[in-house]
Design a protein around this nucleic acid. Structure first.
Length: 589
RNA sequence: GGGCCCGUGGUGUAGAUGGAUAACAUAUCGGCCUGUCAAGCCGAAGAUCGCGGGUUCGAGUCCCGUCGGGCCCGCCA
């Protein structure tokens, strides 16, 4: 295999019996019986039991007794079928053992700060500080290798489909829209900065101008925003762009790719094949969010019309002022105590809702409710019927501005789905969300913001709305959603200068600003740009879902902490005066 | 910028209402042990309770601050 080892620790079987082999790896466990010592020797491929017997070699038996956990050792010995009854069926190599003839410690190890040989919970700060040890553990080895397999599969698949992988710069240009940029000062150009790419968006479009037609890249992207469990300052996208396509072409490629990954690389079950498709408005109506978890029901129902006419002021006044009253039934939660309902109430308040209206159907005719006393029996019955409720259900409602009602109900739905065990992590519910609004109104900035990004094309039939009623125009955008996570987003792009300039001005860029920031794009669109579109998928989130992990740090070899620090290398860290001077920088702390 | 949770031997935890030698498991070290595979048995060592201040006769426990980690809001086209 290599100079130092002839076989891996996961390789030997009974047919190797009689061979002399040399293994090398880490001491996983030691079982010292005094006269007889066993070690489990581990490498990336598995674990093999090594026996040290003084009858075979007194010298190696003596050396073997001194081995400790995580020592790196090399063992030469004879493969022997284990004596009958002593096989270990839980180990792939459990039919055999290696009888040590020679042992060499390649490097001893201090006692590790946490267990390498079992997947017990460890304080995450400690894991990150000793990430190289954490990465030795089974959980991380499994995740990192799964990640590799997914990326390998993607490359093979897309190459097969005629795609070309092209690298784009890490040092690029800061642009005004989107997330905060990571900046890199230029030594050669005093006072000027590069920005690390938030995505290779512009570059991949320029590759379409350049005629590559089918591009992809496993691209590192950078965004200087605060962390979440599913957000890191640097993360990896599968970036794809194709020429001469419409939405369905892009969606089809990605759908085939993701289906194949689930079926061939993971042990997960695909709930929808083909993937479900939802329009944005439908997603908002039924789930209150544009990234619904479709593994379970409990869909939202609008009761604004009933609420408008009732004597419960919270309901009627909300509707009168343009708000919504919506809710859903939590199946089987009719017995929830006041305390449990108060917890749900606290949850929706976090998302801006004023409160939770509830109605519990305990028995056949027994009703507990926070609001039913203000309604006629008929109105209550209408609500109960509309939600298709049965005894034992708990009906939960929010009356608020549409954004708040939808947001808080969607969160509440997820929380209840979790409690009721409806979010089976072995199931992947992939769905496309399409027909997004082209732009959304930003109250604070008093301007239109692109829903996706600056280069997304509006629907052809909605182009006329860009002047008349921009809020009603739809974009050629599509998101891929899995189990409540947005795992990809893409669009058909604008490929004509006039339309691009029109969109720039719609979102408030002056012609001057547009040409300064995006002149290279506008210019390129005048040199024969094919219609094109593409998508960017979040590799980290996708592997996280496939690996059944609660956050993306678990599928990134060297992730950063919530405060964007690397606890192992202890960075960010100060630099010398000399370095600052060369970069023409002065600190103002 | 804000809210919440966590920090106790190497590791994982216990330690209501403040009370005397800070408990348990495991790891570590030593002894015994020739068929274990989470080996077993016996013994030992190991903790300024994240750090700083305060309240108190007395603080792991209460208060304030601070550092580190996590979850979330804002933010993330």
């Amino acid at each position: 295999m290599t100079t130092l080892k002839t076989h891996t620790c996961g390789q030997l079987r009974s047919e190797h019996a009689g061979q002399t082999v040399t293994l090398a790896g880490w001491v996983h466990r030691r079982r010292d019986h005094g006269g007889l010592t066993f070690i489990d020797l581990r490498d990336r491929w598995g674990v093999t039991q090594v026996v040290f017997n003084p009858d075979t070699s007194a010298e190696s038996h003596a050396l073997g007794r001194d081995l400790r956990a995580e020592y790196v050792v090399r063992v030469k010995g004879n493969v022997r079928r284990r004596p009958p009854g002593l096989e270990n069926p839980s180990l792939p190599t459990g039919e055999i053992e290696v009888v040590a003839q020679e042992v060499e410690t390649l490097n001893p190890a201090k006692t590790p700060p946490f267990y390498i040989n079992e997947d017990t919970p460890v304080d995450e700060a400690l894991r990150l500080r000793y990430r190289y040890l954490d990465l030795r553990r089974q959980r991380m080895q499994r995740n990192i290798i799964l990640r590799h397999e997914v990326i390998k599969f993607i490359r093979d698949f897309l190459v097969q489909e005629g795609f070309v992988e092209v690298e784009t710069p890490i040092l690029f240009k800061s642009t005004p829209e989107g997330a905060r940029d990571y900046l890199v000062p230029s030594r050669v150009h005093p006072g000027n900065f590069y920005a690390l790419p938030q995505s290779p968006q512009q570059l991949k479009q320029l590759l379409m101008v350049a005629g590559y037609e089918r591009y992809f890249q496993i691209a590192r992207c950078f965004r200087d925003e605060d962390q979440r469990g599913d957000r890191q300052p640097e993360f990896t996208q599968l970036d794809v762009e194709i020429s001469f396509v419409d939405r369905d072409d892009v969606m089809d490629i990605i759908e085939r790719l993701y289906t194949a990954i689930v079926e061939q690389v993971s042990d997960k079950e695909l709930l929808f094949k083909p993937f479900k498709r939802l329009r944005y408005h439908e997603a908002m109506e039924r789930f209150g969010t544009d990234r619904p978890d479709m593994r379970f029901g409990m869909e939202l129902t609008d009761i604004s019309d009933i609420a408008a006419e009732c004597d419960f002021r919270v309901f009627s006044e909300t509707v009168a002022s343009g708000g919504l009253v919506k809710g859903f039934k939590a199946t089987g939660c009719g017995g929830y105590s006041r305390k449990q309902i108060d917890e749900l109430n606290a949850l929706v308040r976090e998302f801006g809702a004023h409160g939770l209206a509830w109605l519990a159907l305990e028995g056949e005719a027994e009703i507990r409710s926070s609001f039913a006393k203000f309604l006629t029996d008929e109105q209550v019955q209408d609500i109960v019927n509309r939600l298709g409720s049965k005894p034992g259900d708990l009906l939960l409602f929010i009356a608020d501005r549409p954004e708040i009602a939808n947001e808080s109900l969607s969160r509440l739905r997820l929380a209840l789905g979790e409690r009721l065990g409806l979010r089976d992590s072995n199931v992947l519910a992939l769905c496309w969300v399409t027909d997004f609004p082209f732009v959304t109104w930003d109250e604070e900035g008093q301007r239109w913001d692109p829903s996706h990004h600056l280069f997304t094309a509006p629907m052809d039939e909605d182009i006329h709305l860009l002047d008349a009623d921009p809020g009603r125009a739809r974009g050629k955008q599509y998101d891929l959603v899995c189990n409540g996570y947005e795992i990809a987003g893409g669009s058909i792009r604008i490929h004509r200068r006039e339309l691009q300039e029109k969109v720039f001005s719609l979102i408030g860029l002056t012609l001057e600003e547009a040409r300064q920031q995006f002149g290279h794009m506008l210019e390129a669109f005048e040199f024969g740009t094919p219609p094109h579109g593409g998508i960017a998928t979040g590799i980290d989130r996708w592997v996280m879902l496939l690996a059944d992990e609660p956050n993306i740090r678990e599928v990134i070899a060297f992730p950063k902490s919530q405060s964007a620090a690397d606890l192992m290398a202890d960075t960010p860290s100060p630099v010398s005066e000399q370095q600052l001077k060369e970069l023409h920088l002065k600190l103002d702390l």
